[in-house]
Write a protein that binds this DNA or RNA. Structure first.
Length: 492
RNA sequence: GGCGACGUCGCCAAGUGGUAAGGCAAAGCUCUGCAAAAGCUUUAUUCGGCGGUUCAAAUCCGCCCGUCGCCUCCA
């Protein structure tokens, strides 16, 4: 079954046919590095990380480019505030971005270019547009002339007249058309600059992506991604600059991810209602955050709340519990099972059937515009059957254990694409426990002492004292779990 | 004002013509001294409302209501 991708350019799902068979060229707008990243950045980057991984999984040789925009007005402003050079700011937040993405288990792109390393290419591109007459210099700035590019706004499906009617911006009177945008900005005193034919200055906002993507991927490439909010003006302007310069189609498939909302409203810097990735990782495991982000389709809005994160946490734990239980069964098995008949129970037969189609169903979901929500639902479906088999301890024979091995392999294959469920189950569980115990207001030795006292009380059937001690611990957030081999405890 | 998206069980969320996936929560059961935890089972004749097309619609069309986004920096 062919992969189908929703293309913003045509507003439809289209069969994906790469420019060159077996190869995919893909560019995703990274970040402007002037501050820490928020959950919205996490979503976009996780979404395209999965796109990248799935394309690789499908057998394509993928060249994945994700840029850093490391020169921009916001960076300059921030540098001014702090009284440092602009590159102190950009380098700091590049490092922060890299750290955040590593924690979110992102695969490394093939190239991670920085705008400042491509100034020559940018100047050449602007120069070409000026020479052509599609761009014009004024007082050290250079503007793109939207009137010279007839298909301007084809991506966002608007027209120039409407845009002007709704314009809320003060128009620079020097521009030929109110919608003309800057390719190059002349430097004011004290600002960073590069020499250019139009004087000292720096790149405008959109031009760096055109220059870097065309340099690394060619004038026409397969996939260009980013958040929905980049459709206009950023991607629209990229198309204008690039296609005007090359005379060729710039990008074949435009992909845009939906927003992260807070109380059904867009999370954004300007609204001030954002959470940084760092903030959230203080409180939730990074794998939980990633799992949460993949639990909705990448184009849908997703509402960020404690409740929803807690739900994701519970769901992911359910999967790991089943994986851990399989590990246990496999570990304490072997010899004693060998003699047992290899008959499969009804549940085991169902498991066998689910395993046979597991990978196909995964691909079917992902081929439909990267439907990770459906892919995850399939995993839960498998987990339910798995638990049913696990529950029947007497039926754990060699044949069933072999199914468990298959299940582990099958899930690992999927986990490798989604970038979740790829921890060692017992490690994951230990990670959660230690995270929770860090905000505990009682020390472990004290817990152990009370547990021991209660065990003694239970031994002599003093259940009143036993329950008293249990309540005492519960009040401090410690939950007791009595089992055949003694009493374990966990943080509530 | 222009353009666009969305509205599916208490909550989250798949499903774009063939008769409602999955998760969380809840209830029942198993287990337990009792619990907790865990597991199993159950839980929408119905998809914002009203019309229409069709043998058949959550899915297509029209209108209405509601929410949100873009049009300014934004993933």
């Amino acid at each position: 079954m062919p992969l189908r991708i929703y293309n913003t350019l045509t507003s439809a799902k289209e069969e994906f046919v790469p420019l060159q068979p077996g190869k995919v060229s893909m560019y995703v707008c990274g970040v402007t590095v002037y501050d820490n990243c928020h959950i919205g950045h996490a979503r976009a980057n996780v979404a395209f990380d999965v796109v990248y991984r799935y394309l690789c999984h499908s057998g394509y040789a993928v060249t994945y480019v994700r840029n850093y925009t490391d020169i921009d007005d916001k960076i300059i402003n921030r540098a001014k505030q702090e009284g440092v050079e602009f590159n102190v700011i950009s380098e700091r937040y590049i490092q922060a971005f890299d750290d955040d993405m590593a924690r979110l288990n992102l695969a490394m792109p093939t190239h991670q270019p920085k705008a400042t390393e491509y100034v020559d290419e940018i100047i050449a591109l602007v120069g070409k547009l000026v020479a052509q007459g599609t761009a014009y210099p004024i007082d050290g700035d250079v503007y793109f002339s939207v009137g010279k590019f007839p298909s301007y706004l084809k991506l966002s499906g608007r027209n120039l007249e409407e845009m002007q009617a709704g314009a809320r911006v003060d128009v620079d009177e020097r521009k030929r058309h109110p919608m003309d945008f800057a390719l190059w900005k002349g430097a004011k005193p004290g600002e960073p600059y590069w020499p250019s034919p139009w004087g000292n200055g720096r790149p405008g906002w959109h031009i760096e992506c055109s220059a870097m993507s065309m340099k690394l991927l060619g004038e026409t490439f397969d996939i260009h991604g980013g958040g929905k909010d980049l459709v206009f003006p950023h991607h629209e302007n990229e198309i204008a600059q690039s296609e005007a310069a090359s005379g060729k189609q710039f990008v074949r498939y435009w992909m845009h991810n939906g927003f992260v909302n807070i109380n059904a409203e867009k999370m954004s810097k300007s609204l001030g209602n954002f959470f940084t990735i760092r903030d959230i990782l203080e409180r939730y495991d990074s794998e939980v955050l990633r799992f949460f982000l993949l639990s909705a389709h990448y184009r849908s809005p997703i509402d960020f709340s404690d409740q929803n994160l807690a739900d994701a946490d519970a769901g992911l734990s359910r999967i790991y519990s089943a994986l851990a239980a399989m590990d246990d069964a496999l570990a304490d098995s072997a010899a004693s099972r060998e003699a047992s008949p290899a008959l499969l129970s009804e549940a085991a037969l169902e498991l066998q059937e689910k395993l046979a189609t597991l990978h196909d169903r995964f691909c079917e979901a992902m081929d439909d515009d990267f439907n990770t929500a459906l892919a995850i639902a399939n995993i839960f479906d498998l987990v339910r059957v798995l638990n049913r088999v696990l529950a029947d301890k007497a039926a754990l024979n060699a044949a069933v254990l072999s199914l468990f091995s298959q299940a582990k392999t099958g899930i690992a294959r999927i986990a490798g694409v989604l970038g979740v469920m790829d921890s060692v189950p017992s490690d994951y569980q230990a990670r959660l426990k230690s995270r929770k115990s860090s905000d505990l207001n009682i020390d472990v030795a004290e817990i152990e002492r009370i547990v021991a006292e209660r065990t003694a009380a239970r031994k002599v059937k003093d259940f009143r004292r036993s329950d008293e001690l249990r309540d005492q611990l519960l009040a401090k957030g410690v939950e007791l779990l009595d089992g055949p081999s003694g009493t374990a405890w966990k943080i509530k």
